[in-house]
Design a protein around this nucleic acid. Sequence first.
DNA 1: CTGCATCCAATTCGATACTG
DNA 2: CAGTATCGAATTGGATGCAG
Lengths: 114, 114
Amino acid sequence: MQDIEKHLLHRDVQDALELIGGRWRGAIMTSLCGSPKRFSELKEDLKPITSRVLTKELRYLEQNKLINVERSTAAANSVLYTHSEHGSSCGPIILQLRDWAIKHREIMLEYLKE
Amino acid sequence: MQDIEKHLLHRDVQDALELIGGRWRGAIMTSLCGSPKRFSELKEDLKPITSRVLTKELRYLEQNKLINVERSTAAANSVLYTHSEHGSSCGPIILQLRDWAIKHREIMLEYLKE
DNA sequence: CTGCATCCAATTCGATACTG
DNA sequence: CAGTATCGAATTGGATGCAG
């Protein structure tokens, strides 16, 4: 029983890190924390991401309900990306990770001095 | 100025996700949250990880000061892996991620029912 | 502006076998 | 017990060009 739970624990962590891990997914979610954005704004914000990769990651996040995609029927070629309700709930966690990474860099730098 | 800060924000998130992201690093850190472990215990706990990959990831975490490695000189073939002080500070964040992933799964299942 | 198609390089990860 | 060596499959992600 405990064994099963332990394994599930790891699997959940792996799931989470697949959802927001990788080179770009966390950064995309971070970028959308500030405000909804269009494709070109994301591309600019996340430079040097390519449109191929940005498209792919946005589709992934959409399929996993972390973002909403508003494809305006009125104005063609205008698509707005926003956090889904559930997607926005991971924002604070990602920001904690960011703070942790900043602290980590300081620690590593200090260590290199010695 | 603000542009620079925004880009740095993304880079920090990317840094964090490189440190604990990927298939195994987060799971290893989670496993060490419970208690210090030896190589074989980690391998068992993280099954089906291979020793090749486990070795590589442990070396990475060691180099980045997230874990301590106690290579006992007395008893050969006995190595104990523990969180470093800084490494343990990411434990709570990872557990939040785990909880978030669990909630995510529930949401996805509910969505599939409709 | 928002993407898709093609091609390709690099990396990651696993299987398997072996060592002191 | 704690790894290392070798090989290969699969995935990821970048470059570039094109399309509606």
